[in-house]
């Protein structure tokens, strides 16, 4: 017994040291455990309402889940959805082309317009006036999309719309375009409404970048004889690069535009405004068996396209941190 006590006494400092060491390692690696307890509720909410839907959607994209077929939620069908999409679904390719066209129409315009407006607002020296313009530019962003699009629907009406009224009364155009009813005009018309609705957000981001540029750089350049264009090209644009990258990455989502078309034309006329987003919506919530699995695979493809685009943007426009 005595021998055992001696052994225990000898071991105690070793055990204590070990525990102390383990605690130190744990604290070093994991930090204070109470922190985990405090973030647990938020984490739980995130996992339930953000992470799980993503995982569920991902799984759904490889199933033949049809809302009307009971028990089809987890009926995995491998890559069949993608085989159908690429080789047997003509509407998919049509909608893909429309989405691409829409992106080509809106993205460059939105980028240039928001940069231009941001430059103009940033050049205003009176703070109150600048704030007024910032609010004006940002207002369409906070307007609910349904309200904004119904407003444009009124503007575009071929007989009573203000646009055609103006064309007829002021410019004496006898046959003004049927903006939303004509195959040639419907997509550009929606693109215009879409740009109006969202360019304010990009403008604000550009403004943040512009306000962060040191004025002394411009003064120095002016002293060196640089004109306005040279100052923009050699100072403003390079320093706006991080913001530019962010805006390009954020705008990759334009390709999946759905709501504008749903409200203004529902894909018409003659499917001229049927984007992939809208096609997926129709398949999932309106037509036949309500093929949620197939629609999810379309949305997954859109997601992959967005990720690739964002990845390319970050790769080729990477900037150093200032």
């Amino acid at each position: 017994m005595e021998g055992t006590t001696v052994l225990t006494e000898q071991r105690e400092p070793i055990v204590r040291a070990f525990l102390r060491h383990a605690r130190a390692i744990r604290r070093e690696r994991w930090g204070n455990l109470w922190g985990y307890v405090f973030i647990a509720p938020a984490l739980l909410l995130y996992l339930t309402f953000n992470a799980w839907p993503v995982v569920r959607g991902l799984c759904m994209a490889f199933t033949d889940y049809r809302f009307l077929i009971r028990g089809s939620e987890w009926s995995f069908n491998g890559l069949q959805n993608y085989h159908e999409m690429f080789f047997r679904d003509r509407v998919f390719w049509h909608a893909f082309a429309v989405s691409l066209k829409y992106t080509m129409m809106t993205f460059p315009v939105q980028l240039v317009l928001s940069l231009l407006v941001a430059l103009m607002i940033s050049s205003i020296t009176r703070q109150g006036v600048a704030a007024f313009y910032r609010i004006i530019v940002y207002l369409p962003v906070v307007l609910p999309i349904s309200v904004a699009m119904l407003l444009w629907q009124q503007l575009y009406h071929y007989q009573f719309g203000y646009i055609n009224y103006l064309l007829k009364a002021v410019f004496h155009v006898s046959q003004p375009p049927n903006w939303l009813g004509d195959v040639r005009w419907a997509l550009p018309a929606i693109a215009t409404a879409g740009v109006w609705k969202s360019f304010g957000g990009d403008t604000l981001l550009f403004l943040i970048g512009l306000y962060g540029i040191n004025r002394e750089l411009y003064e120095a350049a002016a002293i060196d004889g640089a004109n306005a264009w040279q100052r923009f090209w050699n100072i403003t644009l390079p320093l706006l690069r991080p913001i530019l990258v962010l805006i390009i990455a954020l705008n990759a989502g334009i390709a999946s535009a759905t709501q504008e078309m749903l409200i203004l034309t529902n894909g018409g006329p003659q499917n001229a405004t049927l984007t992939l987003g809208l096609y997926g919506y129709q398949l999932a919530f309106q037509q036949g068996d309500l093929r949620l699995g197939y629609a999810a695979s379309i949305y997954l493809l859109l997601g992959v396209i967005h990720m690739v685009l964002a990845g390319l943007v970050f790769k080729f426009f990477r900037t150093e941190r200032y």
């Binding site: 009124q154 009406h157 071929y158 007989q159 009573f160 049927n178 939303l180 009813g181 004509d182 006329p269």
Partner: peptide, 10 residues
Amino acid sequence: PPHGSDGYLD
């Protein structure tokens, strides 16, 4: 109206 229905509601 154009196409028989464009802008009919207004």
